[in-house]
């Protein structure tokens, strides 16, 4: 059972503002989706104990970077707020 309070917490963790009405519907919808996907709990844990890792992360080698500055203008242009070649953001430290 998922509660409305949990949905509120999830929205906060996800950094998404949702309306009061949507919290209600989301709680019901997530509840029904969770009920469906919980089907997976029926798979015996014994079978799973022998399981090896199927997927591994593959990282790109950290070499051959592109030439410095070639994307600067286009990236700056995409920024919502930009000043003198810098991305402008709000203060992240409160003075309180």
């Amino acid at each position: 059972m998922i509660k409305k309070k949990e949905v509120e917490k999830l929205a906060e963790l996800s950094r998404i503002e949702i309306s009061y009405a949507e919290k209600e519907t989301l709680t019901k919808e997530i509840e029904s989706i969770l009920a469906y996907i919980s089907e997976i709990q029926k798979v015996s844990s014994d079978i799973l104990a022998s399981d090896g890792q199927l997927l591994t992360n593959v990282m790109r080698e950290d070499k051959d970077p592109h030439e410095s500055g070639v994307f600067t203008d286009v990236l700056l242009e995409a920024m919502p707020k930009e000043e003198k070649g810098f991305l402008k953001v709000k203060k992240i430290l409160n003075q309180e």
Binding site: L10, S14, I30
Partner: peptide, 10 residues
């Protein structure tokens, strides 16, 4: 999208 992000976060 909001629904799936919340579900994924859960």
């Amino acid at each position: 999208v909001r629904r799936r992000i919340l579900l994924g976060t859960y």
